[in-house]
Amino acid sequence: MHEYSIVQSLVDSVAAAVGTRTDAVVRSVRVSIGEVAGVDCGLLTTAYEVFRAGTLCENAAMTIDRIPARWECPLCGAAIPRGAVLQCPQCHEPAFMAAGDEIILQRVELEVA
């Protein structure tokens, strides 16, 4: 259950982004979480709801974009189907993860007076 530490880092990242705009209110936070990033979106949401009280994210709703895992052949670019052996059937190269391990803060929205 490391989602609380992720939320702690998320709030720190938002604080860094807001910087010196102390009059601004953070209204929304949008994150991308990859399917195999090792982060459970349900737990992340729960952790966020608990943790954001008293932080600058107190008034910010969080949206999570779940990014599906995508494995590809590094040589021919062929997509490796889900559940298959992670090797290109043509080139026999080990696949690489083209998407799916993101733990990214995409954007925040600030309300300014």
């Binding site: 880092s9 807001v18 733990i103 954007r107 929205e109 600030l110």
Partner: peptide, 25 residues
């Protein structure tokens, strides 16, 4: 306040970040 039309809405400023949440780690 919104400076464009006088509707009374506050301004929402989006910040595009694309930063890794675990950047410090």
């Amino acid at each position: 306040m919104c400076q464009d039309c006088g509707c009374g809405d506050t301004n929402l400023v989006p910040l595009e970040l694309q930063t890794r949440i675990l950047a410090r780690n």
